[in-house]
Amino acid sequence: MKEMYEQTKKGLLIRMPKEIDHHSVDEIKNKIDKKIEYDCVANIIFDFNNTEFMDSSGIGLLLGRYRMVQYIGGRISVVNVSDNIIKMMRMSGVDKFITISGN
């Protein structure tokens, strides 16, 4: 089992779980927000490699983290995103604020 976080040159990498819904988002937020604040993280990379499911709760999570880091000039990107999740990101317009790369 890989660690949930990894500090990379490009920013803090966060490995997202298999299922992203209202239930799991609450857990993820509890874990990552403290780290983002304590470590003054500016750039975050969410890795969707293991993610098979996402609903609109995931969109809320991304927008919320974007709001947290934008004040200090931070950036949010998402990597290894499957086609159906990219579709949801585009529909909601979060692709205007975050950088998306597929798998």
Partner: peptide, 22 residues
């Protein structure tokens, strides 16, 4: 309506109905 939410403080995206419809 897309992006409408009564709970912005809980980071709801307001996309629930839009996704159901799509």
């Amino acid at each position: 309506e897309p992006l409408f939410t009564t709970k912005p403080s809980e980071e709801r995206s307001g996309m629930g109905f839009a996704f159901m419809e799509a």
